[in-house]
């Protein structure tokens, strides 16, 4: 039983990390009042770009950089459309999904089903031999530690810095922020591109670390789950951590329960990650009745200075 739990806990980051990073990307973007539904497409493109870079002879870090860059470029397309040309955010996001999946298919043609050597676990020496803590905390691949760093940075950046304050102001009330001298277009575009970089990182994690191979459609809905997690987490990075850990943890235990042959209904198991995440994230919403709504007030609203009144 001990090894069962240990092996399960070791594999949790594999499921949770890509969801968490993509979720952070959604949150950063949404804090500026833009909802980018294109996450699934951005992750698909970056996952393909990462593996293609490795198979072309690039190093893993180079591949990661290429993947992140692809995420930024594709989200920049979305940003220019919605922030500069004021197109509908929902519609543009869906177009990005189709674009990303299409581009990934074109780019990845000829690179599918070719295994790569991806990021391996970091060697922490004696720390790895500590009971329980060793293999769980010190047995992960380097991208998991980068993820932890990114969560801290995002949380700090959005909530504790002056730039973060302006970012949230743009998301709450762009015309007031504009009056106060904040460049709404630059802030929104910046948030979209940083969000795209995070989603690109998430896609790269899937193909370079978790799967170590690329096949078409391998993102398999994780982009949509990241958006759902961001909504459940009410746009707070630390709540996203809780949500991603519960969701990823439940997903990680499913194959392990099945392999033991325990008599549990499979379809019920498949539903569990969604149910548990929903339950846990609803609790604070119920208990903190009367508190303000956390959703950025200007979410999904494009800002046109001429419309100000």
């Amino acid at each position: 039983m001990d090894t069962f739990i240990l092996n399960w806990l070791i594999s949790v980051p594999l499921f949770a990390a890509p969801l968490l990073i993509a979720c952070l990307g959604v949150i950063v973007t949404a804090r500026a009042g833009v909802l980018n539904l294109g996450v699934e497409g951005i992750m698909a493109l970056s996952a393909a770009a990462g593996v293609v870079s490795v198979l072309q002879g690039g190093s893993l870090w180079w591949a990661l950089a290429v993947a992140v860059l692809c995420g930024m470029l594709l989200s920049a397309v979305f940003g220019i459309a919605t922030v500069v040309f004021k197109t509908d955010q929902v519609l543009s996001g869906l177009i990005i999904v189709a674009m990303g999946e299409g581009l990934s298919g074109v780019l990845g043609r000829g690179f599918t089903h070719r295994p790569i050597t991806g990021f391996e676990s970091v060697d922490f020496g004696f720390l790895h031999d500590l009971p329980w803590v060793g293999p769980i905390v010190f047995g992960q691949d380097i991208l998991v530690y980068v993820t932890v760093l990114l969560v801290a940075l995002t949380g700090y950046g959005v909530h504790k810095t002056f730039t973060g304050l302006r970012l949230r102001a743009v998301g709450e009330n762009p015309s007031t922020a504009d009056t106060a001298g904040v460049n709404v277009t630059i802030y929104r575009l910046g948030a979209v591109i940083i969000g795209g970089a995070l989603c690109g990182f998430a896609g790269a994690y899937l193909s370079l670390s978790a799967g170590q191979v690329w096949v078409e459609h391998m993102v398999a809905g994780r982009g949509w789950i990241a958006i759902a997690l961001a909504i459940f987490a009410r746009w707070m990075p630390w709540r996203a951590v809780v949500g991603a850990l519960i969701f990823g943890g439940t997903e990680a235990i499913i194959p392990r329960i099945q392999a033991t042959g325990a008599d549990v209904p499979v379809y019920f198991l498949m539903m569990l990650p969604y149910l548990l995440t929903l339950a846990v994230l609803i609790i604070p919403a119920i208990t903190s009745r009367g508190s303000q709504d956390d959703t950025p007030a200007a979410l999904l609203t494009n800002y046109l200075r001429e419309d100000r009144h």
Binding site: S11, L14, A210, V215, M218, A220, P255, Q258, A259, G261
Partner: peptide
């Protein structure tokens, strides 16, 4: 024979994890 359905046709992450879980058993 340990049999696991991953409920997907292509998800390398889930397929690999299902295999690892079996090996652990």
């Amino acid at each position: 024979l340990v049999a696991t359905f991953v409920n997907t046709w292509f998800d390398p992450v889930k397929e690999g994890q299902a295999a690892e879980a079996m090996i652990e058993q």
